[in-house]
């Protein structure tokens, strides 16, 4: 069962790398925010899986919970902050 969790963690990391494309090359700031949000929610799952691999689930679940809260607050604050900035939609549109 440990190998299953191990390979799903690796697969999850690959998916996070795919999402990272949007976070780095996103045409607007909000696209980057979407990428960051997606990576954050995948990290929450990844933390619990890491806990299962190391047989310390009870420890890692608390970290995952705190990470989920931090991710939510970060996305909320960033979207509140960037909506006041001009030049949000002046970047080159992607088709």
């Amino acid at each position: 069962m440990d190998t299953v969790f191990f390979y799903s963690s690796i697969y999850l990391s690959i998916i996070m790398a795919i999402s990272l494309y949007r976070a780095v090359f996103g045409p607007t700031i909000l696209d980057r925010l979407i990428g960051v949000n997606a990576i954050g929610s995948k990290t929450t799952a990844l933390l619990v899986l890491i806990g299962l691999i190391y047989h310390r689930v009870d420890l890692f679940i608390d970290i995952a919970l705190a990470y989920a809260m931090l991710n939510f607050i970060a996305v909320l604050a960033a979207s509140r902050y960037f909506q006041k900035r001009k030049g949000l939609y002046d970047e080159t549109p992607r088709d």
């Binding site: 909000l30 925010l33 949000n37 939510f72 996305v75 909320l76 979207s79 509140r80 960037f82 909506q83």
Partner: peptide
């Protein structure tokens, strides 16, 4: 809530 915040922005 986060989705709605991004849409709102």
């Amino acid at each position: 809530t986060a989705t709605h915040a991004i849409v709102d922005a």
